[in-house]
């Protein structure tokens, strides 16, 4: 289910966020958008921990994600450089794995209802 959520959310975010020429990917955008409300609720360290765990889990299937660095404030570094060196397929796989695992962790901890609620707060127009 989290992977379906993730796919659906990536499509939505890609559509509503800046054009593809922008150096930020949809996954980066999602992580950035979630960083603020989740950081506020869970603390920056709390969000960072979740993201780091999601990164480790996603790296098993998509190794290039290992190279990403999570900054102290919970933001990603190195996404732009990595994307430039990857083909579109690898990028999509990585994004899907990362967001899927992040949402998966949220579902594990706070359940699907609260996770969906949280996502709707950030993307009110998004429908599953």
């Amino acid at each position: 289910m989290p992977k379906d959520f993730a796919r659906c959310l990536l499509v939505h975010v890609a559509a509503v966020s800046k054009p593809a020429s922008d150096d930020t990917s949809a996954a980066f955008h999602i992580c950035e958008e979630l960083r603020v409300p989740l950081g506020k609720m869970l603390g920056v360290e709390g969000f960072r921990s979740l993201l780091a765990r999601a990164q480790v889990l996603a790296s098993v299937d998509v190794p290039w994600l290992k190279a990403l660095v999570i900054e102290q404030d919970g933001s990603f570094a190195g996404m732009k450089e990595r994307r430039l060196r990857l083909d579109a397929r690898a990028t999509v796989d990585g994004e899907l794995a990362l967001v899927g695992h992040l949402l998966g962790l949220l579902v594990v901890f706070i359940g699907p209802a609260l996770t969906l609620r949280l996502l709707h707060e950030v993307w009110p127009d998004w429908t599953v």
Binding site: M41, V44, R117
Partner: peptide
């Protein structure tokens, strides 16, 4: 949750 009840972490 979110609108009526807001959790804010002050740890940092």
């Amino acid at each position: 949750l979110g609108k009526a009840v807001r959790f804010i972490n002050l740890s940092h």
